[in-house]
Amino acid sequence: MNPADVAQAAPVAHDLSLLGLFWQAHFVVKLVMIGLLAASVWCWAIIVDKTLLYSRTKRAMDRFEDVFWSGQSLEELFRNLQSRPATGLAAVFVAAMREWKRSFEGSGRSFQTLPQRIDKVLDVTIQREVERLNARLTVLASIGSAGPYIGLFGTVVGIMNSFTSIAASKNTSLAVVAPGIAEALFATAIGLFAAIPAVLAYNKLNSEVGKLQSRLEGFADEFSAILSRQVDERIGHAGRSPANAA
């Protein structure tokens, strides 16, 4: 094959637009590109969902704390919240109140271990809430760490393919080599395109989850303190009242 012919034919054969790069790529490189593009879509879906979820949760917490510290009766608040599924602080509050109520509803009034039980319930609820907030953040972490590698894999396959083509055509003109390498590097570009936002968003969302968690724990500690004070008061009252009654 005449090198001049190849050099002339090369620009015609290689369309350097994005679609052209995609269609000329090797099968494996194509798969990698499609996978990375899907990962990018998924990753951004998670980012959007989580951002909305956290802002919603934060607003709900603000509202709940306003109501909680407004001096409204806890019984009334519980009655309002009990009817619908609660999240965040409300969930913690409802869980603790439910345990509290149960302790008084039964025939045997067991006040001795009530603070421990409330603490347990609070812990479990916080854990559940945090788990809910954390869900799917690992996907972001995975995409962020593995994306460049997947893209690099596509690039290596593409460059291998391109080099075998060079060997076959026995021509090392840059016009022959360049398109293959460009399409191979396109895979790494998509990998980075998916991974960079994933890593950034993962760090940001993770820190927000941490903030929310500490807020939940802070509220739980406060509420637990309030409830245990109440329990102590009730024990003192009850200890006197039976005697009084007797």
Binding site: L18, C43, W44, V48, D49, L52, L53
Partner: peptide, 21 residues
């Protein structure tokens, strides 16, 4: 409405690809 992430992301990617092309 509470979890529009997939659609938002999908539409955004499609728009970005079209713009890039």
């Amino acid at each position: 409405t509470s979890e529009p992430g997939f659609w938002v992301s999908g539409v955004a990617h499609a728009a970005l690809l079209a713009a890039a092309m």
